[in-house]
Design a binder for these strands. Structure first.
Length: 203
DNA sequence: TGAATGATGCGCT
DNA sequence: GCGCATCATTCAT
């Protein structure tokens, strides 16, 4: 691996406080070696979901189930779930085994394989193809079949590449009814791929 | 440009 | 039944 070239993120990257991981994920590149080709994208928006006690919006808030068990496992794995009857969401498991926490990938900018992305007829702007957690998984073809994948493997992983200085904006999380007091959403202010520009106010 | 709403299925109470 | 870490469409301003 050449100095300054792409570096695959190893398990120690994920094995840290979830807030730090979330912030550091902005500007990183997600790579998926899909059956039909290599896809990659630059991460521009994420949210942290942390533990059973202090975060009522975390899927683990009411204990371990078959759905969320990957969150309770070791860091550096993909947690994928099905939501609203038609969408999937991708998370990166953080912290340590036994402590359920993860970072939700909310939006990214296409880099490689843009012509291979699953694209709805209604979406005309390529920079908006990955602008939302459900849109990202649909475009990449990620489903529960990929739940539990090891992010240090070769199918699905993250890379550090040279990137510009990022202006980070921090707000409450999108689409939740409880836990809005936590400002655990982070996004790149200068990206056209951010899902929701408006800040959610604490209600 | 923004608010309201229907689609659609799964997991929990 | 109800709520859900969503999205595209429709309608109002």
């Amino acid at each position: 691996m050449s100095r300054g070239g792409p570096r695959k993120l190893n398990r120690s990257f994920y094995e840290r406080a979830t807030i730090e991981v979330a912030r550091d994920l902005l500007g990183k590149v997600i790579v998926y070696n899909a059956p039909h080709g290599r896809l990659s994208a630059r991460i521009v928006e994420v949210e942290a979901y942390i533990g059973q006690k202090s975060d009522p919006a975390c899927h683990a808030a009411r204990g371990k189930t078959s759905r969320n068990e990957v969150m309770f496992g070791p860091p550096g794995h993909a947690y994928l779930y099905f939501i609203y009857g038609m969408y999937h969401c991708l998370n990166f498991v953080t912290e340590r085994a036994g402590f359920p926490a993860a970072v939700l990938l909310r939006a990214a900018e296409p880099i490689e394989g843009e012509s291979l992305l699953v694209r709805p007829k209604s979406e005309k702007k390529p920079e908006r193809l990955l602008a939302g957690p459900g849109k990202f998984c649909r475009a990449f073809g990620l489903t529960r079949d990929q739940n539990g994948l090891d992010l240090t493997g070769d199918h699905l992983y993250l890379e550090h590449r040279f990137d510009r200085k990022i202006a980070v904006e921090q707000t409450s999380r999108i689409g939740i009814s409880k836990g809005k007091d936590h400002l655990w959403r982070f996004f790149d202010r200068d990206s056209a791929a951010v899902s929701v520009r408006r800040n959610q106010l604490i209600s």
